[in-house]
Write a protein that binds this DNA or RNA. Structure first.
Length: 510
RNA sequence: CGGGACGUGGCGCAGCUUGGUAGCGCACCCGCUUUGGGAGCGGGGGGUCGCAGGUUCAAAUCCUGUCGUCCCGACCA
């Protein structure tokens, strides 16, 4: 099952990775609350350890936790129920935040007339290599080829132009949840596939300032807030350099998270498009001054790539670790041995947790060995597991197993609901704290490009943008290290690339 | 698209060098015993060896092409 594994491509990422995979054993000892506390027993090795081969570990998790697999054609992905449930939770949380900004959902066509792309020069140039084109329909060649959307600025721009007549129609804030396709040479489940699911928001505003503010509002209040409070992933927010900017945008802002192997992942981007698209698609409104004005547009997106980020940001050698607020299954109530008493006690706990609003799953499978079910739950990263067997019942207890901290403890049946709630809260926080600590430990201040390249190989280098510059950026890129974002010295997000004194964050990235 | 590796039951692999009618582990099905960390024993089903050509009496094995996967690089959510 587990092959020899290729030798690690570079130096071992970080010491703490190996540490998380270390089998933990411990004897029973009294807890402060009088319950017994025992650390996790040695767990079955079902995955390639992260320290041995991180990419292999990723593939193993995706396969063993049954998250997704490849489709029949190059780069396609099939998202299985366990993986899709994670995405659905992301959609729920994100959608609420998007609507909170006053944005409404809509749906636009999958196929876009090729000519639309040619109206914005940078846009067409930037996307040309990734566009799939439909040339035939009904057995005949089409008069005009239709592009399978790689993103929808053009077709939405066409309709915005139609819908925006007056300053009273602004701002116009639209979002769609859909699939997009991009031809990709190198693909990886969730992280880069030829087809993926995402949300793309598109807005028109009457002024530059308003559009600019909105771009940043999405970055902070929707994206970063979701990633930090729900995904428990600290993100670096900042502005992208010209090299990383969206094709056709004035400025691109992004949220970057650090994976456990020290590489960064762009989790979401928000673009201010200036008047580039409003001019190309003639999005004009009549102002209160009686004059026609071009609108100012924005676009912003997050995708199923976040599922990959979640896996690589939190997962350990036993599988996924899903933050409680996101988890489709927060509590896994597990019957340890088949008996009527055990079943009814487990059902009672299940009903109680469900009644408290905890997303709970009851596992009464009597024909699957305990170990297998425990390992499955760990692979899928259920935050807490409540094990109920004859031994627990004899003491009027259940066993609470926490995936994130890796502890087991016996809790009186009457206190299970409270203990679960406490654990879910605490573990959400500890997962975030752990990720933040890891990032800080992997981040170093440097003053030369050479140092930035060195640090960036295994972590994040922080360097004054003046000391790096476009030449340094290009030089670092030769070694696979890129500028992820630029920030102000105080950590806030710059309004533009022309600000003086910006700080650059460099690392390798997915 | 450049460099490297690899395609053999669902998954992981052996067999290939030296052509001769396809094997192992896991998973799956049945039975019994089991269930507190991937259970044991017994029985059973499943593969035209990625695909297409070629060489040969004979191809998983040799040759050519092609498609796909993984790693590294260029491009990107």
């Amino acid at each position: 099952m587990i092959g020899p594994g290729a030798p690690s491509p570079g130096p071992p990422p970080v010491g703490r990775i190996a540490e998380t995979g270390r089998p933990r054993t411990g004897a029973l000892r009294p807890n402060a609350r009088g319950a017994h506390l025992v650390e996790s027993l040695t767990m079955a090795k079902v995955l390639t350890p992260q320290s041995e081969d991180f990419p292999r570990w990723y593939q193993d998790v995706v396969a063993k936790a049954q998250l997704a697999e490849n489709g029949p054609a190059k780069g396609q992905q099939v998202i299985r129920p366990s993986g899709f449930a994670l995405w659905e939770r992301m959609v729920d949380e994100m959608d609420a935040r998007i609507k909170e900004t006053g944005t409404e959902n809509a749906s636009f066509p999958l196929l876009i007339p090729e000519s639309y792309f040619h109206r914005e020069a940078d846009h067409v140039e930037g996307f040309a290599p990734e566009v799939w084109m439909v040339t035939h329909g009904g057995g005949k060649e089409l008069e005009e080829p239709l592009a399978v959307r790689p993103t929808s600025e053009t077709i939405i721009g066409e309709y915005m132009a139609k819908w925006v007549k007056s300053y009273r129609d602004l701002p116009l804030q639209l979002n769609q949840w859909c699939n997009v396709m991009r031809y990709e040479l190198r693909t990886r489940l969730f992280l880069r596939s030829s087809e993926f699911l995402w949300q793309e928001g598109h807005t028109v505003h009457s002024t530059y300032e308003e559009a600019h503010e909105f771009t940043l509002r999405i970055l902070h209040d929707v994206y970063a807030d979701f990633m930090e409070t729900v995904l428990a992933m600290p993100v670096l927010r900042g502005i992208k350099t010209e090299a990383e900017r969206f094709a056709g945008a004035l400025n691109t802002f992004g949220c970057e998270a650090l994976m456990r192997d020290g590489k960064a992942l762009q989790m979401g981007t928000s673009h201010e498009l200036g008047q580039n698209f409003s001019q190309a698609f003639d999005i004009q409104y009549l102002g209160s001054d009686g004059q026609q004005h071009h609108g100012w547009t924005t676009s912003w997106g997050t995708s199923t790539r976040m599922v990959g980020g979640l896996i690589m940001g939190h997962g350990d050698d036993s599988g996924l670790r899903v933050p409680p607020r996101l988890a489709p299954v927060q509590a896994h109530v597990m019957v340890v041995k088949d008996s009527d008493e055990v079943h009814s006690a487990a059902r009672k706990v299940y009903e109680e947790l469900k009644g408290d609003g905890v997303r709970t799953r009851l596992d009464t499978r009597g024909d699957v060995a305990f170990g297998r079910r425990a390992v499955d739950a760990e692979l899928r990263g259920y935050p807490v597991r409540v094990e109920i067997g004859p031994r627990d019942l004899k003491n009027g207890e259940a066993t609470l197993v926490r995936r994130i901290g890796g502890t087991k403890e016996s809790v009186p049946l009457g206190m299970i609901a409270e203990a679960v709630a406490t654990a879910l809260d605490a573990d959400q926080q500890s997962l975030y704290d752990e990720a933040l600590e890891r990032r800080e430990a992997l981040t170093a201040d440097v003053s030369t490009v050479a140092e930035a390249i060195e640090v960036g190989q295994t972590g994040v280098a922080r360097i004054p943008w003046e000391a790096c510059g476009l030449d340094g950026e290009a030089e670092a890129a030769e070694s696979g290290v890129t500028v992820r974002v630029l920030q102000r010295p105080d950590g806030t997000v710059p309004d533009g690339l022309d600000e003086a004194g910006l700080i650059a964050y460099l690392s390798r990235a997915y």
